[in-house]
Design a protein around this nucleic acid. Structure first.
Length: 578
RNA sequence: CGGGGCGUAGCGCAGUCUGGUAAGCGCGCCUGCUUCGGGAGCAGGAGGUCGGAGGUUCAAAUCCUCUCGCCCCGACCA
């Protein structure tokens, strides 16, 4: 492709709206433009990088035995009502109505549609297992889109769904996908870490996220030197033990005017937050559950949801709190709390003489002890993990890093097949729900993550496997006949050799073209200029280092082909061995 | 959803408080000359319903009301 015949609107200045480097560079390098909040047009250069990632994903999905199809972006509302997610998915589900006022949703993910397909067409265990995938635009009405394509509302995603007759078959496919994912990200040149995660609204029990480590990533990863790694939400950390060597004192009520947060209460009473119990009321489907946790810790709602097996979990409203506890928000406590389940995080074990809300306006109880003053129905791990907690695998402290989630795989089980009555007949003629798995990769986010990982002050440094072009030919002075003739000839010969080439044939000054070359980050650059041509040479340079290699004109083709091969295999052979 | 900020030329911004030759700057774009190996110089030029609607006024980018869009922070931990 000739620069003058394509569309690469580069910019010298950062766009004001961009915060993170990948967003800035994707705009500056002419990869994309914003249409509206969280929605982008991918320009030719950006689209080429996206297509490269897609192709790698496609190859690896096919290799793993998945079948490509393409599902609609517009989903009938009934399908989502059937699975229960019409109400449960949340506001991110973009709902629309057609001219007949029929309800539709823009697909944020496709479990419903694929399950509907399978239930209509697969009746026998003999056809299982089956895995389908698609690469398609998704829409999620994010509460706050940001960081460009990293948290967009409209984005390209690969999603795959597998169907099985039993757990063993699901395990096998899950493992296969896990390995495919590792290969995909390696082939994209990315270093990723698989971590244990929470399954959120998708559902299911076992799930891993693939993270690209990046300082400004949105997700916090807790990891241990033993190899354990999990997201903050998914971590099963242990809280360092804290016990108090004190005799139980008599229960006492104290006035705590105006103190309705942990901070205010601890300050008012001059006690450590660890000696306070927070009592949080949740509406869990149709019942109310009180969750107790030590004052210095936060609750992991995903754990509560799983523990109570409820579909919808929300904090109780102030009205509900008043009704249940008899006191306004800020004074709830476990003593005398009636009509609710009382579950506790394990962080309460070992506590003596603690502070709790009195279920009375402007009052707390001190020197509370259990089971003397109240009973706890069960002790479970319900806390949000944090750095410094202990590794569930080996007991050493966990450390915190940040990452960008580029892929996630789930064992769904029968969540959707049961609610949507998608069944097959096993060999004994029994009707059973499909056992499912699902597997996503954020394609556009992967491109952004690659830029986060590979850039310098000058711009992007594409890994060659996902670069929009492999080689940039840069004739310095397009008015010089010899220069342009040489460049044209190299362009032609190397194109015939199968290389993807961009030639900067613009009539611009050298410095200008060099700056743009660095900005758009094509991995190899072949500079053709009068000075070197006098010696019969052209100049070959890798974007990622500073060395300029002067090579004989007639050896240039062979050299370039060899170097590209070398660059590719540096990335791809690693994955081949794994 | 709450709070804050911003909408003026393709991009980045000043001007708004204090209404009146305040429609301006830099980059980019067009023409010409010079220059030509890391975002050139000079000269000339094109380009704006000042986000939109309504209002106040002799007069509105500027004041008032409404509205739309964009960005940032926060979002119930008792």
């Amino acid at each position: 492709m000739r620069w003058t015949e394509t569309f690469i609107p580069t910019h010298k200045e950062d766009p004001t709206e961009a915060e993170v480097i990948s967003h800035k560079l994707m705009v500056r390098a002419g990869l994309m433009r914003k249409l509206t909040s969280g929605v982008y047009t991918y320009l030719p250069l950006g689209l080429r990088a996206i297509k490269k990632v897609e192709q790698i994903v496609r190859e690896e999905m096919n290799r793993a035995g998945a079948l490509e199809l393409l599902m609609p972006i517009l989903h009938p509302g009934e399908l989502w009502q059937e699975s229960g997610r019409w109400d449960l998915y949340g506001k991110e589900l973009m709902k629309v109505t057609d001219r007949h006022q029929r309800n539709f949703a823009l697909g944020p993910t496709h479990e419903e549609v694929i399950t509907d397909l399978l239930r209509n067409h697969i009746r026998s265990y003999r056809r299982l297992p089956l895995t389908f995938y698609q690469i398609q635009t998704k829409f999620r009405d994010e509460i706050r889109p940001r960081f460009g394509v990293m948290r967009a509302r409209e984005f390209v995603m690969k999603d795959a769904y597998s169907f099985h007759e039993n757990e063993a078959s699901l395990d096998k496919t899950y493992q296969r996908m896990y390995e495919a994912y590792a290969r995909i990200f390696q082939r994209c040149g990315l270093s990723t870490a698989p971590v244990q995660a929470d399954s959120g609204v998708i559902g299911g029990d076992v799930t891993h996220e693939f993270m690209v480590l990046a300082d400004n990533g949105e997700s916090e990863i807790l990891s241990c030197e033993c190899g354990y790694a999990a997201t903050r939400e998914g971590a099963r950390s242990l809280i360092p033990p804290y016990s108090i060597e004190e005799k139980a004192k008599p229960l006492e009520k104290v006035n705590t005017p105006g103190a309705h947060t942990v901070e205010q209460v601890t300050e008012f009473l001059n006690v450590d937050a660890k000696r306070l119990i927070k009592t949080i009321l949740y509406r869990c489907d149709d019942r109310v559950v009180a969750v107790l946790i030590r004052g210095d810790r936060d609750i992991n709602e995903a754990k509560v949801r799983r523990s109570r097996e409820c579909a919808k979990l929300e904090m109780a409203t102030p009205e509900e709190i008043l009704k249940v506890s008899g006191a306004p928000v800020g004074f709830t406590g476990p003593v005398g709390l009636k009509g609710v389940e009382l579950i506790s995080d394990k962080s309460l074990q070992g506590l003596v003489n603690v502070v709790v809300g009195a279920n009375e306006d402007q009052a707390h109880l001190i020197n509370t002890n259990f089971p003397r003053d109240f009973a706890i129905d069960s002790f479970e791990s319900l806390h949000m993990a944090q750095a410094g907690d202990l590794c569930p695998a080996c007991g050493k402290p966990l450390t915190s890093r940040r990452g960008i989630e580029v892929g996630q795989i789930f064992k769904l089980g029968t969540k959707y097949s049961t609610s949507m009555r998608a069944t097959f007949l096993d060999q004994d003629g029994r009707e059973l729900p499909f056992i499912m798995g699902c597997y996503g990769i954020g394609i556009t986010r992967t491109v952004a993550a690659a830029i986060e990982q590979y850039h310098d002050e000058g711009g992007i440094i594409w890994p060659i496997t996902i670069a929009p072009y492999q080689l940039l030919i840069l004739p310095l002075n397009v008015d010089d006949e010899k220069t342009i003739a040489t460049a044209e000839q190299l362009y032609e010969t190397l194109s015939e050799a199968g290389l993807e080439i961009l030639m900067d044939d613009r009539d611009e000054r050298a410095g200008f073209k060099f700056k743009d070359a660095d900005l758009i980050g094509i991995p190899l650059r072949l500079t053709v200029g009068e000075k070197s041509l006098e010696e019969g040479k052209v100049e070959l340079k890798l974007r990622r280092d500073d060395q300029v290699l002067k090579i004989d004109q007639d050896k240039a083709v062979a050299h370039v082909v060899k170097l590209i091969h070398k660059e590719r295999s540096a990335i791809e052979n690693v994955s081949a061995k794994k």
